[in-house]
């Protein structure tokens, strides 16, 4: 959970708005280290999955052109206050993280 900041808010219209910030370098593999001149290897999140009560609400496939420390927001219907949302990500080096938040 350390890498994920997530907030889910239920609106009066029954729509849950989710806002997510993930700390990740999202290196493209094209940039050079300014001190050493060496190319910084590609290191980016490839897949982000968000589940509500075990059902997929969003699967995001990302390339390296998502900005560093990615931000993502989306909305879905069917959530209730107190429901748990689970978010998990996997990057191209096989690192992963996941976190949970309750709908407010």
């Amino acid at each position: 959970m350390a890498s994920i900041k997530m907030r889910a808010t239920l609106g009066d219209d029954g729509v849950t708005t989710i806002k997510i910030l993930i700390s990740h370098p999202m290196d493209t593999g094209l940039e050079k280290d300014k001190k050493t001149g060496n190319t910084i290897p590609a290191h980016f999140i490839q897949e982000v999955v968000c589940e509500h009560n075990g059902t997929n609400v969003l699967t995001a496939e990302w390339g390296p052109a998502i900005s560093k420390n990615p931000y993502l927001s989306f909305r879905f219907k069917g959530g209730k206050t107190g429901d748990t949302l689970k978010l998990s990500w996997v990057d191209n080096l096989g690192n992963s993280d996941s976190g949970e938040v309750t709908i407010q």
């Binding site: 969003l58 699967t59 998502i66 900005s67 989306f74 879905f76």
Partner: peptide, 19 residues
């Protein structure tokens, strides 16, 4: 840059930041 597959109750709305 990215592709988002929506679940059944998910609204057709996405916000993110790209390079």
């Amino acid at each position: 840059t990215s592709s988002f597959v929506l679940g059944k109750g998910t609204e057709a709305f996405i916000a993110t930041r790209i390079k």
